[in-house]
Simulated assay, not measured.
Amino acid sequence: MKFPAGPAPDPAGSRGEHRIRSFHARRGRLTKAQEAAIDRHWARWGVELDGSPLDLAELFPAPDGGRLPVVVEIGFGMGDATAAMAAADPGTGILAVDVHTPGQGNLLALADRSGLTNVRVANGDAIVLLRDMLPPASLDGLRVYFPDPWPKAKHHKRRLIQPEFLALVTPLLRPDAVVHCATDWEPYAEQMLQVLTAAPGLVNRSGDTFAPRPPSRPLTKFERAGLAKGHVVRDLLFVRT
């Protein structure tokens, strides 16, 4: 399905360069509701990660004339947890990034159904967003929940949480902004802990270990399924100093 005014297959074009990517763009099969949500709402709530600087005040205006604090979420799946967090915290803008078209459509439909005005759905490479599109000290948080663990050793270089990634993220964070990661893949959790602990400008809120799941992060269907199989879910919360 092609959307003349919807998410583009490759919004950044050559800006993606030839580096290793931690994702694969996926169009997938859309339901009629997802397709209708993209047709109706992409022009207003969709963001193409094409490398052009973003005006966060325009994307997330506040009632007082300023802008909402903004959190970037990378990889939101079908968007159920994102919509729940947006509904629970309407005073925070969520810039939700993914490349899965059915998930994009589903989150747009959830936002419309719930009357959410603080969610924007970003299509494309999160690295382009972080590297080229946001000014320093502009974010109040980053969320990365259940990223692909790339379990084979030869694929570990594709994991998102790496020193190079955090070097892009940290300058974008305001003081006291929170980086919140979660995974149910124990080896990846250990790597995340090591990489985040070593990152300059970030401090572990739980000392030197993992954090309990905060109530602000809803359980997802994926997570419940993992817990039912005996998986151990690890949360990591680091604060920008």
Rank of each mutant, 00 (worst) to 15 (best):
V99R: 04
L107F: 13
L227A: 10
A111Y: 09
T197A: 15
A225L: 09
T101E: 13
T101K: 11
P187N: 05
D55N: 14
E164T: 13
D39P: 00
L139Y: 02
G28R: 03
G201F: 09
Y188W: 01
P136F: 01
E17N: 13
K229Q: 15
A111T: 10
P215Q: 06
L134P: 07
H231M: 02
G115L: 08
D184A: 11
E48H: 03
R224G: 08
D64V: 01
R158I: 09
A25T: 12
I94P: 00
L107N: 10
N118M: 08
M192N: 12
L95W: 07
S52T: 15
D89R: 15
N106H: 15
G28P: 09
I161K: 01
R120F: 04
R120E: 02
P214C: 08
N123A: 06
P200Y: 04
A199V: 00
E190P: 00
P9Y: 14
Q191N: 02
E73D: 07
R67P: 05
E73C: 08
P61T: 00
R224S: 13
D132L: 04
G141H: 05
T101W: 14
T92G: 02
C181K: 00
I20M: 13
G124K: 07
R131L: 03
T209Q: 13
G79W: 08
G230L: 02
V97F: 02
A87D: 14
G65L: 00
S206C: 15
R158F: 08
V195T: 14
P171W: 12
A122M: 05
K152E: 00
T170S: 09
A122V: 05
A33N: 08
G93V: 03
P149S: 03
A12Q: 12
R40I: 03
T92P: 00
V119C: 07
Q194G: 14
Q194L: 10
D112W: 09
R159W: 06
D148V: 07
S216I: 13
D125N: 11
D80M: 06
A12V: 11
G6Y: 12
S138W: 09
T101R: 14
R131S: 14
G226K: 04
G230A: 06
A122Y: 03
Q162C: 02
A37M: 11
G103N: 08
H156R: 14
F60S: 03
L116V: 13
W45D: 12
F210L: 09
D140V: 01
L30S: 06
D176F: 08
F165Q: 01
V232Y: 01
A167L: 04
N204S: 10
A83R: 12
I74C: 02
P9R: 14
R224W: 08
P11A: 12
V128Y: 02
G105F: 11
I38H: 07
G93A: 04
R26C: 07
R26Y: 11
L110V: 11
L56V: 09
M133Y: 04
V72D: 04
L227V: 10
E58C: 06
A83N: 10
D125V: 05
A8V: 14
G103K: 05
R131M: 00
A137N: 11
G46R: 07
E17L: 14
Y145Q: 10
R240V: 04
D132V: 05
A83H: 10
I38F: 10
F60I: 04
T31H: 05
C181R: 00
A62R: 05
E186I: 10
D148E: 07
H231E: 06
D176W: 06
I161T: 11
A198Q: 07
G51H: 07
D39Y: 00
T31L: 10
S114C: 14
